[in-house]
Design a protein around this nucleic acid. Structure first.
Lengths: 143, 143
DNA sequence: GTAGCTGCAAATTCTTTGCAGTTGT
DNA sequence: ACAACTGCAAAGAATTTGCAGCTAC
């Protein structure tokens, strides 16, 4: 049976209180405020467990490490700001995309990621653009 | 100035002759047929170089390692078969998706991946479903 | 001849796993 | 009690990098 430990609560809380999907390292940083000794291995183990239970879902953006968020809303997509690199939920969906697939292919699902500027970074020239730097930079493609 | 080596030609050819985006390891396997001593480091270095030159583009699917293909066609998307795991190009596009973004957000681009069954694997009950297994299985999420 | 390229191996980064000790229930 | 959980460190996998030798041009 699943236990209720300080570590697990801290990890749950960190994700529940975030307004966007978090990287495992971000989860660790946040959860360590409550449980200083928390290790990254526990974070990974707990994330996997909570995903398997259906409490969390992984958000995999191209060229980025997996992020995690509460399931809450069913089908939705994501938006990544090209300036601050943060990822936001998009609760809209283009709908049925079966027509896009080649003949003979069956479409069961889809993933969509929008790229651009978030409202904080979109401001033209007025306010100095703040670079949030909440998410560590990635190292792979699409940089 | 860029040189024309056996290794580089083999890597170019491997990708040019593939009918789908290839993983670095798949590029290595294919290119080693022409240049047996080829090392994986050279493949990575060459892929990065060719991407920077605009000759190749990286195809990043959620939870999968990056694949590489010729640029050729501009904007297109991808389809991954949930049975054989192979990835195919989709030359259709849903078009402008700005409307999906939250207020204040600016959409500059998008990535779309369709999931389902490819024409080989879609067959209902008739032909036995062949599991291609051309692409090594990944280990991360969405498995 | 020399700068670019290559293979090898070591280094990095992200994630998983083995193990012994800790802790919910 | 006892299995689940945890931290640590080692193991793995994917990718990058240092370096000395090779090779196009």
């Amino acid at each position: 049976m699943e236990r209720n430990t300080r570590q697990r609560s801290a990890i749950r809380d960190a994700i529940a209180q975030a307004d966007r999907p978090l990287l495992p390292q971000e989860v660790l940083d946040a959860a360590q405020l409550a449980v200083p000794g928390l290790g990254i291995a526990t974070v990974y183990r707990t994330l996997k467990l909570l995903v398997d239970e259906g409490e969390l879902q992984a958000v995999n953006l191209p060229g980025e490490n997996a992020r995690f968020e509460l399931v809450g809303h069913q089908h939705h997509h994501h938006f990544q700001c090209r300036q601050c690199q943060r990822v936001f939920d998009v609760h809209a969906c283009p709908g049925d995309l079966s027509r896009l697939a080649p003949h003979g292919f069956t479409v069961e699902d889809h993933d969509l990621t929008l790229y651009g500027r978030c409202s904080d970074c979109a401001r033209p020239t007025r306010t100095a653009r703040r670079v949030a730097a909440k998410s560590p930079k990635s190292k792979r493609q699409r940089g």
